[in-house]
Amino acid sequence: MIQRKNIFLETSIICSVAIMIASINFLHGINAIKTYAKDNNLVLGPEEVFNRVFINLDFVNIEYMEGNNPIHYTGPFIFFLATILIGSYTFLTLKKPYYQFLFTRARTKQYGVALILKGYFFRVTLFTGIYISGVILMIFHKNLSTLIESPTIIRQSIGFFLASTLISAGLTLTLYSLFTKFDEVKSIVVVLIILFITFGANIQFPHLSIVFLGEDEYFKGGIFVGGILLFVSYFVSRVTKFEIK
Rank of each mutant, 00 (worst) to 15 (best):
I55C: 00
F50L: 12
E48I: 05
F77Y: 15
G67A: 11
I62Q: 09
N61K: 13
P70H: 10
K96W: 07
E47M: 11
P97C: 06
N51A: 03
I55Q: 02
Y64P: 04
V53Y: 07
E47N: 14
Y73P: 07
F77I: 06
L57I: 02
G87D: 05
A82K: 00
G67T: 11
G45V: 08
L94W: 13
I55W: 02
F77A: 07
E66T: 04
V43Q: 02
N51G: 07
T90G: 03
G75P: 08
T74F: 15
T90S: 14
F77T: 09
L42H: 06
I55M: 02
S88E: 06
G75E: 14
F79Q: 08
F50Y: 15
F54D: 05
Y64V: 02
F59L: 14
F50P: 10
F79I: 03
F91E: 11
H72V: 01
L44T: 01
G75L: 07
K96G: 06
I71Q: 14
L94P: 01
P46K: 03
Y73V: 02
V60K: 15
N40H: 12
F50S: 10
I78Q: 09
L44H: 01
L81I: 11
P46G: 02
F59G: 05
E47L: 08
F79P: 03
F80K: 05
G45E: 11
I78N: 06
P70K: 08
I84H: 00
L57H: 09
E48M: 07
K95G: 02
T74N: 08
N41F: 13
K95V: 00
L44F: 01
K95S: 09
V49W: 05
H72Y: 13
I55H: 01
F91Q: 10
P46Q: 11
S88T: 02
I55F: 03
K95C: 01
